[in-house]
């Protein structure tokens, strides 16, 4: 019985990459994360939404960089060398997320996810699947499918 319980527990365990934007902590399922890179200059895109910083060159591949802070309604990031880009693969597309810093890789149990508090703004609610509580810190789990540039999804 106890063995079975352990089994179940391990089945529900996932690793998450936690990172910060401003004072807030967020996370992505590590399965989506390809690599983490320092800030590199991007090429501005015409007619792009304000949260799309531009296109970056990742070893010959051209991919968009999204300012997560702007996307989540937390204000525009002025990118500097201390900023970090998380390269993620979501819905068959590769994309870079511009964040302040990557903090940790943590193993969590998916059962521990809690619903987003209702006080959240509609924008936050749309992009956050829920929250994990880790040592008194609230880590917001990003809904990766929603966070992608929407036109991109409809065009796909």
């Amino acid at each position: 019985m106890s063995e079975q319980a352990t089994q179940e527990q391990t089945d529900n365990r996932i690793e998450i990459v936690s990172f910060t934007i401003g004072e807030q902590a967020f996370c992505l399922d590590i399965g989506h994360v390809l690599e983490i890179r320092g800030w590199t200059n991007t090429t501005t895109l015409p007619h792009a939404p304000d949260y799309v910083v531009g296109m970056m060159n990742l070893r010959g591949a051209v991919l968009p960089v999204i300012d997560l802070s702007m996307r989540l309604g937390l204000g525009k990031t002025i990118p500097e060398s201390r900023h970090v880009i998380i390269i993620a693969h979501i819905d068959e597309k590769s994309v870079g997320f511009l964040v302040d810093a990557v903090s940790n890789i943590i193993t969590v149990n998916t059962d521990e996810i809690k619903a987003t508090p209702e006080v959240s703004s509609s924008k936050t609610a749309a992009f956050i699947r829920g929250v994990y509580t880790l040592e008194e810190t609230i880590v917001r789990a990003i809904d990766v499918h929603q966070i992608m540039p929407q036109e991109a999804l409809s065009a796909a």
Binding site: H47, A48, M55, A61, P64
Partner: peptide, 26 residues
């Protein structure tokens, strides 16, 4: 380099390329 693969098509822009210095030019 196509833009649609990871992003979407952009009005007025056909595609992108990578310059000698590693920068992207549309």
């Amino acid at each position: 380099k196509g833009l649609e693969q990871n992003y979407q098509s952009i009005p007025g822009i056909a595609a992108a390329t990578i310059l000698g210095n590693g920068k992207i030019a549309l």
